[in-house]
Computed example of a mutant assay.
Amino acid sequence: MLAGTKGAAAQGAGREIRLLMLGDSITAGYGLARSEGPPARIQALLRDRGRNVRVIDAGVSGDTTAGGRARLEWALADNPDAAIVALGGNDALRGLTPAQMRANLTAILDGLAARGIPTLLAGMIAPPNLGADYGRDFAAVFSDLAEARPDMVFYPFLLEGVAGDPALNQADRIHPNPRGAQVLAERMLPAIETLLDRAARSAPG
Rank of each mutant, 00 (worst) to 15 (best):
R49N: 14
R49P: 08
R49F: 10
G50P: 13
G50M: 14
G50I: 14
N52W: 01
N52P: 03
V53N: 03
V53I: 14
R54H: 09
R54S: 12
V55C: 06
V55E: 01
V55Q: 03
I56R: 05
D57L: 09
G59F: 01
V60R: 04
V60M: 00
V60T: 13
S61E: 12
S61F: 13
S61Q: 12
S61K: 15
G62Y: 11
D63N: 13
D63T: 11
T64G: 08
T64Q: 12
T65E: 10
T65M: 08
T65I: 09
A66S: 12
A66Q: 10
A66F: 04
G67R: 00
R69A: 02
R69Y: 02
R71L: 07
R71V: 05
R71G: 07
L72R: 15
L72Q: 13
L72E: 14
E73F: 04
E73I: 09
W74Q: 06
A75V: 02
L76M: 12
L76A: 12
D78R: 15
D78N: 14
N79T: 14
P80C: 00
P80I: 02
P80S: 02
P80N: 04
D81C: 08
D81V: 09
D81F: 08
A82C: 00
I84V: 15
I84A: 07
V85W: 05
V85Q: 05
V85E: 05
A86Y: 00
L87A: 02
G88M: 00
G88E: 01
G89Q: 05
N90Q: 10
D91F: 01
D91Y: 09
D91G: 07
A92S: 13
L93W: 11
L93C: 12
L93E: 13
L93S: 14
L93D: 11
L93Y: 13
L93F: 15
R94K: 12
R94D: 03
R94A: 06
G95H: 04
L96N: 06
L96A: 12
L96C: 09
L96W: 11
L96G: 07
T97G: 10
T97N: 04
P98G: 10
P98E: 06
P98F: 06
P98K: 07
A99F: 11
Q100P: 10
M101P: 02
R102G: 10
R102Q: 15
L105P: 00
L105S: 04
L105A: 05
L105C: 05
